[in-house]
Amino acid sequence: MITVLEPGWFTSFQDRGRNGFAHLGVPQAGAADSLSLRHANLLVGNTGNAGALEITLGGPILRFEINTVIALAGGRLEAHLDDSPLPMYQSIPVRAGQVLTCGRLLTGLRCYLAVAGGFSAEPVLASISTDTFAGFGPPPLRAGDSLSVQTHTLNHGWYLRAPPQFPDNVMLRVIAGPHEKWFTSSALADFLESEYEVRTRSDRTGLRLAGRQIPRSNPGELRTQGIVSGAIQVPGDGQPILLLPNHGTTGGYPVIAVVIHADQPRLGQLRPGARLRFESVTRAQALAALEAGETDLRTALVPADPGLLAARSLMQLAKSHPFLQEASVQMGQRKLRLRR
């Protein structure tokens, strides 16, 4: 059990979201930065779909009533466990009675707090994600809430080899279309040469962008059709909207391009004022980027403790992570490597 002393600016439960219900109009929701969610879960030994807390901008203060292991991944968060600064991207043991105090996010927009075993909230349509659009799932954290945690074996001492950075200037790779014909002939080229800024009226459904107007050749609306995360919609005013995982399932604005899957987690870290540029790639390049990301994830975790204890943890990790292909640990002059 974990007691919420302060909820923070906006802290919600998120997992991988609701899958398989889009034909009923149910948004996927789930972590806005799904890669950081996976990193946090990986560090505490959870499966990828375990629920974590999505901390937006900062702020929650939590008291642990149990011994457990936690990890933070995502935008750089000022956090303290009692009086000690808490490093990110490491699995950290926590004793009952300790207080985690989160300050501001210094980079990015969201940080994920995973706990060994995952949070156990009441699932709605097989997910504990808070859907901020349709109002599903557990409500965002409030002061005084008691959070339940699933029991789990506790491994700690792991860290992530190469944590990502979250700069406010990013290049996002896109695949052009599918509605290129709804725009003037030079619109796509102009869009790819321009810089866009994230506006304040952005949320978990989408980022509203400001920048060079994207002129339409057809002022009408599309017939309502299914839409995807990462789509760059262009309403009549020519200012694009970039869809995030909590978007409604259908829409009627033409889409000039779609951010590739490998780059979509980055979208959840873009704060108002962030500057974006877009680069057109092929489907083959998009798939190669996605595959490279999955390969990285399989070797992302490294044990921090040298020695026998670490070696034992290595074996435990191999058992609890069937997808982990390789892990290594330095013991003095020698390196212990485990390869599947």
Binding site: N19, G20, A22, H23, Q28, R223, T224, Q225, G226, I227, V228, T249, T250
Partner: peptide, 11 residues
């Protein structure tokens, strides 16, 4: 992952 039927399309 998902099949989203609409006005005259299936996503």
């Amino acid at each position: 992952r998902e099949l989203v039927p609409a006005y005259n399309t299936l996503l």
